[in-house]
């Protein structure tokens, strides 16, 4: 039961920001940052550093020692004097990340999406999808100052506005669901728990 009361206190402390920025909110905010940062550090230890490095080394497999040491070098970034050493471990995962991005987004996003737009313009919907994609693309075309291109991108902006309108609607829907669940908690688990 205490847990629910503690959770209810912090929920109301955050909601108090609606009235205005106040010390209770600031206190709750800093407690949140402290607890969550401490949580992330402990989780990183238990999910990677311990099982993939420490336990394996204790079992005699010394291979993970190398990334482990490189990881410790990474921590040197916190000391300004030795910051340059941290560049090498960072280089590895920046390089891997960059290459993965290039492959993934070419195959899964570019080619697949372009192929998905190669529809026979027989049905109205297909025609609208093709037209919409092409005109929206011209809106993001900055290379040429072209007279009738600007008319085409005017249609494109229309499609973009409809899309952002739909995104506005779904965002309102999503945020309301969050609020509903907080009220659900306050009503049934906190207050309900008391009756």
């Amino acid at each position: 039961m205490i847990g629910t009361w503690v959770a209810a206190f912090f929920t109301l402390a955050i909601f108090s920001f609606l009235y205005r920025d106040n010390p209770i909110y600031r206190l709750a905010e800093h407690i949140f940052i402290g607890i969550s940062t401490g949580y992330y550090i402990a989780v990183q230890w238990h999910s990677v550093v311990k099982p993939n490095v420490v336990d394996k080394v204790l079992l005699g497999d010394y291979l993970p020692l190398i990334p482990g040491v490189l990881g410790l070098l990474l921590l040197l970034r916190l000391i300004p004097k030795y910051q340059w050493i941290a560049r090498y471990p960072i280089a590895i995962y920046i390089g891997v990340g960059a290459a993965l991005n290039m492959i993934q987004y070419t195959q899964g996003f570019l080619i697949a999406q372009i192929q998905g737009t190669m529809l026979s313009p027989t049905s109205i919907n297909n025609l609208l999808i093709i037209l919409g994609t092409l005109t929206s693309l011209t809106y993001f075309f900055f290379a040429l100052e072209h007279k009738h291109l600007s008319k085409v991108s005017k249609i494109g902006i229309g499609f973009l506005m409809l899309s952002f309108g739909a995104a506005y609607g779904t965002t309102v829907m999503g945020r309301l669901s969050l609020l509903i669940s907080r009220f659900d908690f306050l009503l049934f688990e906190w207050l309900g728990g008391m009756f």
Binding site: Q44, V49, N52, P67, V96
Partner: peptide, 17 residues
Amino acid sequence: MDWVIILLSFSYLMGGI
């Protein structure tokens, strides 16, 4: 890939510290 997972974990540790 296994190395990068370990390095990423240390980078999150560095963020927290």
